[in-house]
Design a protein around this nucleic acid. Structure first.
Length: 282
DNA sequence: AGCCAGGGTCTGC
DNA sequence: GCAGACCATGGC
């Protein structure tokens, strides 16, 4: 259970000692936070700017009201989920036990569906650094300024009448036309994200895939990070490599129960600790 | 310089 | 169902 209290302009939270801001905010699930210092980050989620730091056992949300903390950041950082019990369960699997030991402090953020949709459309055949650049230009171009040099993620309404030409400055490449299709489908109501949120996961995935440039992997990322569907297990190149070598027989059942979190541990482990995987063959 | 990046689509079998 | 070409761009 977490506890929080106001201290000056800040909200400080205890009971989150197992979170790592580094491993959570810089692991490719969100693209708008940047590191200021060790366990000190700033960035934007949705329409809110945040500076956040971990100091010993407490996490400090700088210049944040209790109201905003409770209504937004608490959920964003998934503070009501018991990660200890999830880690305990996943650690039954030997490989996961190692991945968890390597980076126990990862959390799966609960982000905005629209922001997640556009962000992961931009992620295809792309790298994290460049995705960040494109998303940042998207926000600066179309989003409302919310702090010095920071912009809210643009709403659907704000982007509804933008053209392919307007997207050129983003330098998104061939993905720009996919962004356009997402805008068109969501703005017109052809795809209603509110309704997607209420669909069973398989049907929600099907409806997301109707957008051009959205395949199974991007849809799973949107479902996991944007719709909180913890059973989704996005399979990108890193995961495919890792799974092939670590689980040649297929993924064990104990992983699939918390597939999204398991996937995040494996992804981070494979990407930042490649020597952890002895990839001897092919 | 050339390879790769949190892929998807289209074509051809 | 699966393999391969292709898609734009920039970081390394």
């Amino acid at each position: 259970m977490i506890n929080y209290l106001a201290e000056g302009q800040d909200i400080i939270v205890s009971g989150l000692s197992d979170i790592s801001l580094q491993d959570t905010l810089d692991c490719g699930q969100c693209f708008r936070f940047s590191k200021i210092d060790e366990e000190l980050f700033e960035g934007v989620a949705g329409e809110h700017y945040l500076k956040v730091g971990k100091q010993g056992d407490i996490v400090r949300f700088y210049n944040t009201t209790e109201e905003l903390f409770c209504s937004f950041w608490k959920r964003y950082f998934d503070m009501d989920t018991d990660y200890l019990s999830i880690r305990t369960s996943l650690s039954q699997d030997e490989v996961l036990a190692k991945a968890i030991k390597y980076a126990p402090g990862i959390r799966v953020l609960k982000q905005d569906p629209w922001e997640t949709l556009l962000s992961f459309i931009l992620s295809q055949n792309n790298n994290v650094k460049r995705i960040k650049g494109i998303v940042e230009r998207l926000a600066a171009e179309f989003g409302e300024p919310i702090a010095d040099g920071f912009y809210a993620f643009p709403t659907v309404e704000r982007m509804a009448n933008c053209t392919l030409e307007d997207l050129v400055p983003l330098r998104a490449g061939f993905r720009a036309k996919y962004i356009m299709d997402a805008i068109q489908k969501v703005a017109s109501g052809e795809l209603d994200l509110q309704k997607v949120a209420m669909l069973p996961t398989a049907e929600a995935q099907k409806s997301l895939i109707t957008i051009k440039g959205v395949g199974e992997k991007v849809a799973d990322c949107v479902l996991l990070y944007g719709f909180g569907r913890m059973e989704c297990f996005p399979k990108d190149v890193w995961i495919k490599r890792a799974v092939k070598h670590l689980y040649p027989q297929g993924l064990p059942q104990v992983l699939l129960e918390n597939g999204g979190i398991a996937q995040q541990y494996i992804f981070h482990y494979a990407r930042t600790c490649p020597e952890a995987f002895v990839m001897t063959e092919d």
